[in-house]
Simulated assay, not measured.
Amino acid sequence: MPLTSYIQKILKSRKQFGILFFTILTIDILVKECCPVFPYRYISKPPVLLLLILYYYSNQSEVKRSDYLWTVISLVCFFMGDILIINHMNVIFLSVSLLLFTFGKLFLSFRFSHKSDFKVTRLIPFSIIMFIYTVGLVSFLYDGLKNFFVPVIISYFISLLLFQFTFLRKDVVDKASYLNVFFGVIIYMMSEGIMVIKTFKTDVPLQGTLIMLFYGTGLYLIVSGILLEKKIKKVVSPF
């Protein structure tokens, strides 16, 4: 079987791709923990997001072209942010990567937005939880943020927006898609939280492993959820 056909077969199989993706993710985590940053992380890290982009491109069947564009642009933002944040000790690289991750979350929010009716009361409990989480985290990090205070606040506001749009997909899309994206966003935000604590405050046990494990798993679930998505058609009563 030609190599290109074999690769295409893997990309079309959710099970085979999952095995490949988490193998590459594990290799990157081991490289992060055991090898010098340069040049090894620049070799091991890019394939993680590149695989997700190829997986999405090979399997997407978006009805709306805008949904396709928002997803691709978001993944490209995460990919570029990934490369830059490897050298997070460089203030410029760190700043640009934070901006790219913020845009990545914003474009995902656009992707998950919809025009279906929803009850505002459903948002209240989750908004309260996210508000407490954000305020608590920023308060803990306040002394270390310094010039990054405003960018981090904006980034976490976009995280809250993404979380809300994700939650509001309930009863609009099928359960499998909803749960994959919902838990994917939560796991991604856990990675984000550990990353900012490590960068601006103090070290966290197993931080290198946890950041990449949660980050990769979160984005994998989000992309999987998008590919599984089926809109639920609501029956309108004639009475």
Rank of each mutant, 00 (worst) to 15 (best):
L20K: 04
T209A: 11
R14L: 04
L49T: 11
D143N: 12
I226N: 08
F200W: 00
I10E: 02
S113E: 06
D117P: 01
S224N: 15
S58F: 12
R65A: 11
L49S: 12
L49Q: 11
P39I: 09
F101D: 04
L137N: 10
I211E: 06
V37Y: 07
F103G: 00
F22V: 04
F131R: 00
P46D: 02
S44D: 03
A176G: 04
L108F: 13
S13D: 14
I186A: 07
K231C: 00
T209H: 01
K15G: 05
L179K: 10
K64C: 08
L108S: 00
L221H: 02
M189T: 11
V172P: 00
Y56K: 10
T134N: 14
L49A: 08
S127V: 11
Y220I: 01
V91A: 12
K201W: 05
Y68D: 08
D28Q: 05
V138C: 07
Y220E: 03
T4I: 09
I124G: 06
G216R: 03
M189P: 00
T166W: 01
R41P: 02
I92Y: 11
T23N: 06
F149A: 13
Y215M: 00
V120K: 08
F17D: 03
G208C: 00
M189E: 15
M130A: 15
S116H: 11
F140T: 03
L228T: 08
L51F: 04
C34E: 09
Y68T: 09
L30Y: 09
E62C: 11
I27M: 06
I153Q: 07
L123R: 06
